[in-house]
Amino acid sequence: MNDVKAITVDHLTKKFGNFTAVDNISFEVKKGEIFGFLGANGAGKTTAMRMLCGLSIPSSGNATVAGFDVYHQTEKIKKNIGYMSQKFSLYEDLTVKENIRFYAGIYGKSNEFIKNKTGVVIKDLHLEKEANKLVKSLPLGWKQKLAFSVAIFHEPEIVFLDEPTGGVDPVTRREFWNLIYEAAATGITVFVTTHYMDEAEYCNRVCIMVDGRIDAMDTPQQLKKACDAASMDEVFLKLARKALRSDT
């Protein structure tokens, strides 16, 4: 792994009126890294991620994504990232192929590129029989995997995953993480928020947010050692117990 920075965050803050959703956070993510962003509901994970995706303007601090500034170069950032939200993000009334074509189309990919890569993706996901079926006929796990493949279809530098595995069974979750590993192996940086602690173990590095601040940041192994805990679950409980904000 080299030392090129995919994301740099420097004293980033977001306030909504009197409420400080993200409070002076700083961190860096290396290219090709799988970076886990953990925290209870309402800890500020999604707000932080929205700022990095160019959906929300920070109140103060600096950040760059793929080398572009989040204040002035959001258009360039958008071209270089992929995004998958916690809500299911494909169109149910379009077929598998049409969804791929649509998303690739809005990223301005050429017809040839789309045609060639669609075949590869469908083969990788074993969706050959379902390629011309409506997405709503697929089981949830397949949809999530497809949504991930669509999010990285245009070959972004960084992919942001906002609680991507919500409501999915453990087996499918494991398969989903295999896809993430494959993507990371091709050099795509993965920024993932989750509150499943078993998933935190899969990350190269995790950062735990409590009340809008970063409470701990290290590899899962180091964190467990530092907190004298057997699993990430315990680490999280020890840290999150200090939280003042209630669950939202």
Binding site: L55, K78, Y83, S85, F88, S89, L90, Y103, I106
Partner: peptide
């Protein structure tokens, strides 16, 4: 359905 968010993150 949440697709709007994905559209807003895209370069469109």
């Amino acid at each position: 359905t949440g697709t709007m968010e994905v559209l807003l993150v895209s370069p469109v």
